[in-house]
Amino acid sequence: MLSIKGLNVYYGTIHALHDIEFEVNEGEIVTLIGANGAGKTTTLHTISGLIQPKSGEIKFMGKPITHVAANKIVEMGIGHVPEGRRIFANMTVMENLEMGAYIRKDKAQARDDYEMVFSRFPRLKERIKQVAGTLSGGEQQMLAIGRALMSRPKLLLMDEPSMGLAPLLVKEIFSIIQDINRGGTTVLLVEQNANMALSIANRAYVLETGKIVLSGSSKELVASEEIRKAYLGK
């Protein structure tokens, strides 16, 4: 569904991503794990068109999207839950979701999708008129996910959804991710919390300083000595 070949990204003279290659197949949850500064967020930003790569190719559903504008990429079916949630703090919960549906032309179906989001996140429905900046961290993360779902993505990019959340909430968020995936949305998940990420993902790639150093099924990676030492702390 998504295939990335020989991707090189620079920030000025800094070489942030070196020849990144990976694939995401339809229906999967794939996770990119790695430490701070490994290039996880850069990878997601490059896919969704927020950063232009120097070289390489990104294909989505067979079509090259390497140099397509970010707003067009959303229309093609890639949703993005950005790092640090980035909700619209001065807008209400409902207005945030409406922004998520901004590109939708089928307003009637969008209406059903609001209900879908509310049934998935009942807490958002309770706070529908509340200003989003006053939500708790977990609720803001739910809103960020709900907002991304409003564009009806085929592929959902999620950037550290566990960031800054209490362990119990992290569990809740991850079970929601699984739920979304069961509903037919492919998920590319970037995480520092390798333990949780590997527990729900089908496959995983390990990024280190801009390079993919390991890949395999989640089971293999969990079993690998290297990973256990470096990322799982066991």
Partner: peptide, 17 residues
């Protein structure tokens, strides 16, 4: 207004900034 609130988020919502 969404551009004022958060440019990256607005762009990821499909808004042509």
């Amino acid at each position: 207004i969404s551009i004022r609130e958060d440019e990256i988020a607005a762009n990821s919502m499909g808004i042509n900034i």
